[in-house]
Amino acid sequence: MGASLLGRLAQGALVVLFVVATCFALIRLAPGDPFFRALDEASVPAEVRAAQLARFGYDRPIPEQFARYLGNVVRGDLGWSHSRGQPVAQAIATALPSTLLLVGTAGLLAFVVGVSLGAWSGWHADRPIARGIDRGAMLLLSIPDYLLALLAVMGPALAWGLFPVGGARTEFGPTGLLGLVDRLHHLVLPVLALALPIAAVVTRLQHAAMRDVRDAAFIRTARANGVPERRIRWRHALRNALVPVLSYGGVQVAAALSGVVVIERIFAWPGMGRLLYDGVLSRDYPLIAGGVLVAAIGTVLGTMVADLAIRWADPRQRNA
């Protein structure tokens, strides 16, 4: 067990290395550089920019830059963010907690709602309401996430005044207990906008899996053996039907980050999604590398946890 865990960790490290290397190279191959600055302001002469590029070693071959970068990372130095004018580590330290809060809340909500709705509707797949739930989830998935977020801002926030329009807290707002309430108030809409599409996918997967399990042989066997219906449903059926959902859950970390890019932009939420998006647009090489490093570690951990959960849910795979 210990050896296999070590093996998984080593594999995970390789994955992270590959991801960072890919983005490291792609961003350097894209036109532009960190000193290009704003759209119509080419006011920094080319030779000055060239000198700046040389100062940070961006004129060297990409493999050499990558080797140096890895060396620095091992020493705990993530580099300097040119677009933010602060160390990359500091930028991530402020952005990561606010994204974790957003993604964590949304993920939890999506899974609880999705699994319950999906499990119930899958078990009762013949009822019209159950089919309605499945179709409702499908419908939700057909609306682009940015549109959902924009409508949330224009309706509940702006037109009805129920929620703040954007940001993570009220500027110069209350502190202490009231401050906490204020932060939760700001969290509601972005969490809903992020969670709804994920919940829809989870509902559909759970619905399909539960419907399949319902007719499976081992359920019939259990029923024939006189196992109580409630125990069948919750112990045997749901546990087995969780496999595809859990398999999806681990990888959802990366997909959620894509959603986060849009949600954080629309809700002016200062987090990792905006850090990565701004980083790409401003060709902030160290910021991208650092952001992707953190995102990749998060995803790898997510998939590992999901794999462990799958082993728990599906005993047959324990030896596979």
Binding site: A157, G161, V165, G166, G167, R265, F267, A268, D278
Partner: peptide, 22 residues
């Protein structure tokens, strides 16, 4: 007494902050 520059990357929702007195 105080100023704050608040960045709202999406103009549509950024302007909505003005309408909402934020």
């Amino acid at each position: 007494d105080r100023l704050a520059l608040v960045v709202a990357p999406d103009p549509a929702t950024g302007i909505a902050k003005l309408w909402a007195e934020e």
